[in-house]
Design a protein around this nucleic acid. Structure first.
Lengths: 140, 140
DNA sequence: TATTGTTATACTCTATAACTATA
DNA sequence: TATAGTTATAGAGTATAACAATA
């Protein structure tokens, strides 16, 4: 006999988990005067080195018009620079400044505290399992 | 020795998984002329029976001003009704109409197709495991 | 022709605050 | 005093389209 019991909607669980993660991260960033999206951009720049706005848009699942404003904001704060791209004159290479690297260190500490608060009730294995399931889920 | 390898940010994985789930659900709902949030409200009303707007706001992690507009929209479509609450004259009991129940059947079919598309690469055990981890994650 | 970055527009969501009628 | 629903507003995100420079 087939299972006809109503399964809880996975989408709602994902929405609520993501909301909670974003809330906790925002709390940890608030003392730094930092925002979630901008922190995400700084972390991507460190993980992957200088990126075009297009690459940032893709890796963060953001939007190219939004990215213009985000990079504007980071540039006004002196955390990144738009440099000419070495091979593509249409594109900008977004790079971290020294101030950006300093801010990033604090940001990474905030991210670490966030992960600890969020997965404090998990074993390391469970934490990795959740991550792997999410990756497979996203790839489809 | 401690593991100092840079762990991928769980928040980003959650964001992308949620975005994908919402996209697939929106695709399945589009032929019905239905939207994700409104579908979520109909499903909550079936799962839990008549609800106040406050209860819907809480269970869907939404916002009370947004909920006013959502219920307005569902009411204009004839899918729900605001009835007087039996014991609290401040509150509305939001109930499904017959048209709402009909629409809900299609919506649930769309939700089932969504889950299948999203977790098609998972065993049922993995699917339940992901859900349980997300619930524990959200509760903290 | 297609793409990168930019700008602009419209629409939605969020956050906030007031307001009413109740509790 | 506090809460449920409503309304209004400002800020941010999203979606769309256009445009210039370049590929």
């Amino acid at each position: 006999m087939t299972d006809h019991s109503p399964k809880p909607p996975l989408g709602l669980a994902l929405r609520q988990a993501h909301l909670r993660a974003a809330q906790v991260f925002a709390e940890e960033l608030r003392p730094l005067g930092m925002e979630n999206v901008l922190a995400g951009i700084l972390m991507q720049l460190t993980l992957r080195g200088p990126q075009t706005q297009r690459q940032l848009t893709d890796s963060l699942s953001s939007d190219k018009s939004a990215m213009v404003r985000h990079i504007d904001s980071l540039e006004r704060q002196g955390l990144v620079l738009r440099e000419p791209h070495p091979t593509d004159r249409r594109a900008h290479a977004v790079i971290l400044t020294d101030a950006g690297r300093a801010r990033l260190a604090e940001t990474q500490a905030a991210a670490a505290r966030t992960e600890q608060r969020l997965t404090g009730c998990f074993t390391p294995e469970e934490r990795d399992l959740l991550h792997d399931l999410l990756i497979r889920f996203t790839r489809g």
